[in-house]
Amino acid sequence: MDHTVIKGAEWMLSPETAEGAPQGIYGAQCLTCAEESGLVDDDTRPVGAWAIAHTRDNPTHRQFLVTTHKPWRVDPVPAIPAAEPEPDQPPQTPRAHVKPRTPRLPRALRSALRRALAYSGLLFLVGMSVASGVVVGMTLATA
């Protein structure tokens, strides 16, 4: 575990790295008689040697609970400066890559316009699509 940062949090949990801080503290306990080895910093070999010696002295004691303690620390999350845009490039908007939509007439107005044109007998030949509500330009002709 290097660092754990929770988004929006003000604190950071990380392993203790101060001088002299152990990477781990190890110990074992016999599950048969509850006898315990001593705790040892940074080296599991003495704990393993104790378990083997304990089993040699008590041949039916063959199961152990091994524990590892790791020192941690909690520190404030360092402030991360906001990245500034390059001076020669304009700032980008979040949707700069999306083509803007063509404005549309409201549905009620499109329906009313369609009915009025059908009633009056006018036909749109070029440029206006009443169904989509997009107005570009129009040429009128009478039927």
Rank of each mutant, 00 (worst) to 15 (best):
M1F: 10
T4S: 12
V5G: 07
I6R: 12
A9R: 03
E10F: 08
E10S: 15
W11N: 14
L13D: 10
P15Y: 08
P15W: 05
E16R: 09
G20W: 00
A21Q: 03
A21N: 03
A21W: 00
P22W: 01
Q23W: 00
G24F: 05
I25A: 09
Y26T: 01
C30L: 02
T32R: 11
C33F: 03
E35Q: 13
E35T: 11
S37Y: 04
V40Y: 13
D41Y: 02
R45Y: 05
R45M: 11
P46W: 04
P46T: 05
A49P: 00
A51F: 00
T55Y: 04
R56G: 14
D57G: 12
T60H: 14
T60M: 07
R62H: 01
V66C: 12
H69F: 06
H69C: 05
P76A: 10
V77C: 10
A82D: 06
P87E: 12
P87L: 11
P87R: 14
P91M: 08
R95S: 00
A96Y: 09
A96T: 00
A96N: 04
K99W: 00
T102D: 04
R104H: 15
P106K: 12
L109D: 15
R114Q: 15
R115S: 14
A116G: 07
L117I: 02
A118F: 00
Y119W: 08
S120N: 10
L122F: 15
L123D: 13
L123A: 15
L125H: 14
G127H: 07
G127F: 03
G127Y: 07
M128N: 05
M128P: 00
V135F: 15
G137F: 10
T139E: 12
A143K: 11
